[in-house]
Simulated assay, not measured.
Amino acid sequence: MKPDVVISEVGPRDGLQSLSVSMATANKKQWIAALAAAGLREIEVGSFVRRDLLPQLADTAEVVVFAKSLPELEVAALVPNLRGARAAIEAGVDKLTVPVSASEAHSLANVRKSRAEMVEEVRAIVALRDELAPDMEVEVGISTAFGCTLQGNVSSAEVLRLAEQLVRAGAQSCGLSDTAGYANPRQVSDLFRSLRSAIGPRAGAAHMHNTRGLGLANCLAALEAGVRTFDGSLGGLGGCPYAPGASGNVVTEDLVYMFEAMGLRTGVDIDKLLEARQVLSASLPDTPLYGMLPEAGLPLGFEERSHV
Rank of each mutant, 00 (worst) to 15 (best):
H207I: 14
Q151W: 05
S194F: 00
V6W: 13
D52V: 06
G226L: 13
S18C: 11
Y257K: 03
E304I: 05
F259G: 08
E260A: 11
Q151C: 06
V111A: 04
V250E: 04
G152W: 03
K29F: 03
V159G: 03
V167T: 09
I32E: 07
L16W: 01
A171T: 06
A221C: 09
L96H: 07
A24S: 08
P134V: 04
L214F: 13
S18L: 08
R228N: 09
H307R: 14
A225L: 05
T229W: 01
G39D: 08
Q17T: 00
A38R: 05
V6Q: 15
A34R: 00
E104V: 01
S18M: 05
C174P: 11
K68Q: 10
G11C: 13
V279S: 01
V65R: 15
E158G: 15
M23D: 04
L234G: 07
G11N: 08
H307N: 09
A85V: 03
S233C: 14
G170S: 10
R212P: 09
L132Y: 07
R305H: 06
Y182W: 11
Y257G: 06
S101I: 14
V138I: 15
E44F: 05
E131Q: 15
L216G: 06
V63K: 00
C148P: 01
M23T: 05
L73A: 09
V100Y: 04
F48V: 00
Q151N: 04
P134L: 08
S197L: 14
C174A: 13
L280Q: 05
L40T: 13
I199K: 04
A261K: 13
Q187V: 07
N210I: 12
K113L: 15
L216W: 10
A163G: 02
G11H: 01
R193M: 11
C148D: 07
Q165K: 11
G152M: 03
D52H: 15
R112A: 11
V64L: 07
G215V: 13
D190V: 15
M208T: 07
P3Y: 09
L35Q: 10
A33L: 04
